[in-house]
């Protein structure tokens, strides 16, 4: 699958395009999940994909990863069709998609990041083990190599999976909710790591429910709700009109906190403190 033509890194003025999605529609069982999405991501950017549950955020990542094929439209990923540069892509699944009782250790999980580069019938070598060790150090999990993944806390599990992505030495990170359900320290640490990767020219596309994090730590944001509502600089997430359009009106505004917004979504409902105003705009 890696026998694609060498990636063309066209020297566009604003930097090379890492991912170009043009008029793509895709879905499952004849039901579209994303309709006519066009989006282009510059290499070296940190893009937050924002939208309610079921909006098609994960679908967009799978599409770019080449795991699912578009019904219509065109995608270019790292200069070729999706799937052609799989060895340069790291994918981080949602925490709920992982069987945490699986009998693997931290080091074994991170080593899986090397498999794409190793190829069939090749055993990990010293350099692979070094890369795994460095990746674990980078996320602050260098001491936990022999622990079973289920014995870790939620934040540690995300750190280990990010280490696996780093160990793949990818040019493109596709991260499905990398900071959902983790403590503030972990979130800051993981975002620091991703920021470093972006500075090194890697492209990071991450879905998230955390709008504050998206506004503060990402460069760009794409708003998705079965279609692309908007895409632009990350501070767009503070635009209440845009949020209302993306989330279908289920937006909470915390008064007196500089326009802080919280999404009234299944994931976040329990986090909303009581006594706030609930603005349900039935504009859709």
């Amino acid at each position: 699958m890696t026998s694609a033509p060498p990636p063309r890194r066209a020297a566009a003025p604003a930097g090379p395009i890492a991912v170009a999605v043009e008029g793509v529609t895709v879905g499952y069982d004849h039901r579209p999940a994303l309709t006519d999405v066009s989006l282009s991501v510059t290499a070296g950017s940190l893009l937050a994909v924002i939208g309610p549950n079921g909006a098609g955020k994960s679908t967009l990542l799978k599409l770019i990863a080449g795991i699912i094929k578009p019904w219509t439209g065109r995608l270019t990923v790292l200069g070729g069709p999706p799937g052609s540069s799989a060895g340069r892509i790291a994918y981080l699944p949602q925490a709920e998609a992982v069987d945490w009782e699986f009998p693997v250790t931290v080091a074994e999980v991170v080593m899986m990041g090397r498999y794409g580069r190793l190829g069939f019938l090749r055993e990990p070598r010293r350099r692979d083990r070094e890369v795994v060790g460095q990746a674990l150090d980078k996320v602050g999990m260098g001491e936990a190599t022999d622990r079973q993944i289920g014995a870790l806390s939620g934040g540690q599990r995300r750190r280990v999976f990010l280490a696996r992505a780093i160990a793949a030495e990818p040019d493109l990170y596709l991260l499905d909710e990398p900071v959902t359900g983790v403590d503030a320290t972990t979130q800051e640490d993981l975002m620091d790591v991703l920021e470093g990767e972006a500075r090194a020219g890697k492209t990071v596309i991450a879905t998230t429910h955390d709008l504050i994090c998206a506004a503060q730590r990402f460069h760009q944001a794409a708003f998705i709700n079965g279609r692309l509502v908007a895409a632009g600089p990350a501070n767009l997430v503070l635009d209440q009109q845009l949020l209302a359009e993306t989330y279908g009106g289920h937006v909470l505004v915390l008064p007196g906190d500089g326009g802080r917004v919280i999404i009234d979504d299944a994931h976040h409902h329990d986090q909303a403190p009581s006594g706030e105003h609930h603005y349900h705009e039935d504009s859709r």
């Binding site: 080449g66 799937g83 994918y91 992982v98 498999y115 190793l118 069939f120």
Partner: peptide
């Protein structure tokens, strides 16, 4: 035994394995 590491990856995390190019 020959493809145990691929089988392990695909069993543990099918999406991650597919994205990294495993069939």
């Amino acid at each position: 035994l020959l493809i145990r590491k691929e089988l392990l990856f695909a069993t543990f995390d099918p999406l991650g394995a597919a994205a990294s190019g495993l069939p």
